[in-house]
Amino acid sequence: MTRIEFWTLTRRLASYAVLSAVTFIVCFPLVWALSTSLKPKSEIFATPPTLIPHAATTENYKALLTGRPQYFQSGGQQVTSGTTPAQFFTRWFVNSVIVTLGSTLISITISTLAAYSLTRFRYWGRTVVPYFSLLGYMVPSIIFVFPLFLVMVQLNLTDSLLSLVLGYVCITLPFCMWLMWAFMRSIPIEIEEAALIDGASRLQVFRQVVLPTALPGIIAAAIFSMIVSWNDYLFGRVFLNSLDNLTLTVGVMLFFEGTHVDWGLLMAASVLMTVPMAILFMALQRHLVAGFGAGAVKG
């Protein structure tokens, strides 16, 4: 082994060691949540705590996915005690999926069209819009939430998933707009011009040339939008009222705010609500770096 090879190897090993240590610390909370979610009640509070459950069980997941009710004793009978959060878990999950997809679809459509228009046409005000979007992107939700809530009251839309879809459009659109604008700007205009000269219409050019080229940007914007919508708590908390209509984040907090915290159930719920984002993230990780590079850091 030459000296250079030796140093390379040592450096690599050192890098792996540091990377592993950092990754362990960063991932530990999630791993611990997963571990807790797989433990039976008796093992959750065991000392010493176990990282890998001795008697792993899927009870907590079953309870959430089958909506198991609670019972109590009265006069020797088992009586159901009415609704428990676990009974609504799958419903909340579906609600979250609906508002996430709905708001993302709307944000992406609007921002892609707008970004194309802003970067390919000349009209008054076209340079102002991106800055305006940037500002909107920075305005925190806490400022939007109550006025928008009063708008929803006026429109008679409170306690509906639609109100939340519109609310999420409001918080995701500025960033999507800005990101798409930055991305569209970086796409060379020559190909489109060539297509136009060849006799294609604007719409054809948009569909067949622009959209495919802009796809990485669209994906990045969509990931961002989905993360924001799926993870939001504030809007859901203020806009939604009845149990049937809650989203996951708002509903899962109900498991916590009761008088009795079932940590196993709570951690299982946490894991389940992280999984969709994890899948999305794994599938589209590369785009995230590329897209954020374009948007957040300016290309």
């Binding site: 950092v22 990754t23 960063v26 991932c27 999630l30 949540a33 993360i227 799926w230 993870n231 708590y233 996951l248 984040t249 899962v252 907090m253 946490s270 609500m273 992280t274 984002m277 994890a278 999305l280 993230f281 794994m282 990780q285 995230l288």
Partner: peptide
């Protein structure tokens, strides 16, 4: 992937 992951975990979680 693992090190970027926390960014997408819901705040509630």
């Amino acid at each position: 992937g693992l090190l970027l992951f926390p960014y997408i975990v819901p705040t509630v979680v």
